[in-house]
Computed example of a mutant assay.
Amino acid sequence: MTESTQRIAIVTGGSGGIGRAVAERLAADGMSVLVHYAGNPRRAEETVDAIVAAGGTATAFRADVADENEVAALFDEAERRYGGVDVVVHTAGIMLLAPLAELDLDDLDRMHRTNIRGTFVVDQQAARRVRSGGAIINFSTSVTKIALPGYTAYAASKGAVDAMTLILARELRGRDITVNAVAPGPTATPLFLEGKEQSVVDHMASMAPLERLGFPADIAEAVAFLAGPARWVNGQVLYANGGII
């Protein structure tokens, strides 16, 4: 850490859903936040405006998470504007669903590029640049354990994220940097709700003993824990799903 007590966070996919909730929560905890987005600058600016209106500090920056040059520029911007990087939360990802026997292989390749390569590229820059005392937080999914039909390719891509997370934590031995993943269960975001009949949503909400879907704020709470006080939690996948598994 530098002499400044201000911590700096990069949140990928910070323009909506869970990513926006995470960006707003970390800003509320006192961090300056660089809000990454891929293709919707208006939504990213809405996130920034909400953080600033609440008294926080944030700016937006566009990058393709699977492009190493653009991700390097994202980290460059955080260092140029705020002086360094302490927390990286990688929420950016895509979910394309179909049974294994029916999945279009182009969809498999798209998820591989964003969810696997994208995580690898972001983590690579994070491993090189996050300051001592920092945290790297990837995003997995509880579907790797729930094993819902139709999620094969998506869950496989997130299984790769789990592996990267556990091994990177050990590769950063001696750096005082934690590396963990958050694995949400069914969460009420546009990504999850889109295209689902209400009966399906109701069934998935009933799976948890708490008998509801998660909310983005629930997931942001887990991220804030790993990004702040949880210095003895390292190399773990934290399942945030209301007790489904």
Rank of each mutant, 00 (worst) to 15 (best):
V88Y: 00
Q198F: 11
M111T: 00
E211V: 12
A126P: 12
R131I: 05
A208S: 08
D123L: 14
D162Q: 14
T187Y: 00
L96H: 06
T152G: 13
A217I: 07
R110F: 11
A183Q: 05
A183W: 03
P209F: 08
A147T: 04
S199H: 14
L213D: 05
L213P: 04
L97K: 06
F120S: 12
A153H: 06
P184H: 01
L96I: 04
A126Y: 08
D104P: 01
F192H: 10
P209E: 09
P99Q: 05
R170M: 10
S199I: 08
L96C: 07
V201C: 03
V88D: 01
H112R: 14
Q125I: 06
A147R: 11
L191C: 09
S157R: 01
A156E: 10
V122K: 00
L193W: 00
A156H: 08
G195W: 01
P99D: 08
I136V: 01
S157W: 02
I136S: 00
A156L: 14
N180M: 07
L103N: 04
A181L: 03
E102R: 06
D107Q: 07
K158S: 01
D202T: 10
T119N: 02
D162K: 09
Y154H: 09
A155R: 02
L172T: 00
A208D: 04
V161H: 07
F139E: 02
R212E: 13
A101H: 05
A160N: 04
T187G: 05
S142Y: 11
V130H: 04
I116W: 07
R173P: 11
S132I: 05
P216W: 00
I116R: 05
I116F: 11
A163S: 15
E197M: 12
K196R: 15
H90Q: 12
L210R: 14
G174C: 06
Q124G: 15
M111G: 03
I219M: 03
H90L: 11
M207N: 09
L105K: 03
R129Q: 03
E221N: 12
T165Q: 05
M111I: 02
R175W: 08
P209G: 06
A153N: 06
T141Q: 10
D104V: 03
I167L: 14
K196Q: 15
R129G: 03
F120N: 13
L191Y: 08
V130R: 01
T189Y: 04
V89Y: 04
A205P: 01
P209R: 09
I177L: 02
T178L: 07
R170G: 13
A147W: 07
A169S: 13
A205Y: 00
L191M: 15
G195M: 00
A220T: 00
S157F: 06
L108A: 14
S132A: 14
